[in-house]
Design a binder for these strands. Structure first.
Lengths: 197, 197, 197, 197
DNA sequence: GATGAATGAGCATTCATTCAT
DNA sequence: AATGAATGAATGCTCATTCAT
């Protein structure tokens, strides 16, 4: 009983992530997840309603970690201005996704917009753990601190996040319209234009 | 035999569109499509490989029509500059999607990025019908004509399209971060900034 | 719950045998087998990969029983020579097939040669149950015991078995080229010639 | 219209044989046969009732040709005795099947016993073309000519043919119980024993 | 909590056959 | 005679879900 000591729930989550990224959500059966997690099929239903719940939990957790890690790193730096910090965070996330394209594919392919929005909101809005603010709070605080004029901060942040996520998917994975390294300067230039009016 | 005069293929397409938008692609069976189109189940397979082919054909056709109509309208106007024309086209598309949110949902929910990109490329690149250029050609020509300086037109257009499509989905359907009418000016402002350097 | 006490697997096997012999394998659907066995369709797949697996299992079991029973009977007799014992076993099998022509048809019609050979080999080679040797072992042992000269016992036995099985099918079922009772003496005469050189 | 001059019927037969031997009868559809024969699907039904009729015709023709060729060859030789001639014919057929194992597989795999019997009967009984007697007639005539004593010629011939066909299938294709070249002498030895009493 | 045998709804897909042209 | 669009019956198979243990 020493082996497989991780809780059944986390074993299910890890197994599901491996299978989802390897074979896609649709082609992974609950049977497979349970088998590979060394857990009875019925046990799956003790923790998750169905395949799609476990997928959503995974997207939520993975995205949250991605943003929080980037945010924490940014706090170790000293920025003289908010825009720099925002771009630092974005750059950090992008770099992680470049290194972990499997994660990028999984998050992008499976985010029904509802989940994605909730996720983002939770990630950059809520500071439910420790003392980390979300990126949204950071943005608001930063605006006040640096006395920047932004008409509608929510809409602005929204626009930035949507722009980043939708363009990076293609640029990283398909180098379309150009490889991510060449695309980055233009992207960051655009973000600066959006923030600094 | 007067009823159902439309070709079986178009009846299948129309029926599929109705069912897809009402119940989603996943929850629509081929049986249902065939039944509602008053056509044998085998006949479906005469025209389409599977459910996903008919879905892709629908997305392709609907998107194409959307862009082409907007483009044609734009040609009736007189613009003194390219950016205005681009924004006119975008505004026209957005207005149509506001009126037809079912279409917006269908296109957004079901576009695997591959299909979407192909679709867009075909739509705004190829001039396979009449003498209409695609939006991409328009953009390139306009840049030359108006002697605008744009470093990488492809990347720029890509950024615009991604920005528009991802933000409008939420703004139109969920009024997040704000209703589309309030969001429009900011969006168009950002687009101007992206084009005009 | 007293009815249908036999295990689901054996109920499936019995039902399949009934349907296969009545309607043929090709015209029996898995649905039918499951329905008649009072078992869910999915349950079928719990025990068998497909229709052909259940068919092969049936052939294997039925043939095995046929040979083993005949072999056991032969051991109750006292034979002064090996050929007599072999012919006794063959005669015993033939007599059973005369009485059970449905079984004869089923086995003959459905034996892909591969299966048949495996079956036979398993049946007359392996002594996996009790202390019964297979007919092959019996043959080898008998050759040594009675000091009979047989150049290649494997080929000889093979020839006998093929001869018996292919001729009896027609003789029993169609009385071609003559009824089995008239054919038997010639057949046994030939077998004696093959063994005794 | 010069291409494909062979009659549609023979084109269908040739195509079916190619497909049947490559993919098996079950996995060949009428559509495929018609397509590859450059013939409309409906045309198939003008010439054959279904897939199994075309298969039976093929088996019949191929087997007939096999025996007739061997028989004709035997007539070019001078035999001092019937047994030698019979064995010559059998050897000739076997040699052809060794060279054309695809044909061997096709004939064996697909001969429902009914077809096989009819085929054989037609082949070695009936002299429907030219002046060639069948093998059966040859056998009867030979018995009279050479004044050989054979109690029941029909049963004897039947036994020989069954023995040859069932053993050779395994020996040629699977070298079981031994390769055909090693098996031949024993087989012919056995045949001699069966004929010469 | 944990299990996995049992279930059967649900679906895609194939294909022989028909028949109007 | 020749065709091939249209058909829909037939079937294999998967898999989420239940529930008795």
């Amino acid at each position: 009983m020493k082996a497989n000591e991780a809780s059944k729930e986390s074993r299910l989550l890890e197994t599901a992530y491996k299978l989802f990224t390897r074979k896609g959500v649709k082609d992974t059966s609950i049977q497979e997840i349970a088998d590979n997690a060394d857990v009875g099929k019925g046990t799956f239903y003790l923790y998750f309603k169905d395949k799609y719940e476990i997928r959503d939990v995974l997207i939520y957790r993975k995205s949250k970690k991605l943003f929080n890690d980037a945010y924490k790193e940014s706090k170790k730096q000293n920025f003289s201005n908010l825009t720099d910090q925002i771009i630092f965070i974005i750059d950090s996330v992008i770099n992680k996704l470049i290194k972990n394209q499997v994660l990028l594919k999984f998050i992008s392919k499976n985010l029904s917009w509802g989940v994605f929005n909730d996720t983002l909101k939770n990630v950059y809005t809520i500071s439910n753990e420790e003392d980390t603010d979300g990126i949204y709070d950071l943005f608001i605080k930063g605006i006040n601190e640096y006395k920047i004029k932004v008409e509608n901060p929510k809409a602005t942040l929204f626009m930035i996040i949507e722009l980043v996520s939708s363009t990076c998917y293609n640029s990283i994975l398909y180098e379309e319209p150009e490889p991510i390294d060449e695309f980055k300067p233009k992207l960051y230039g655009t973000i600066r234009k959006i923030i600094d009016e």
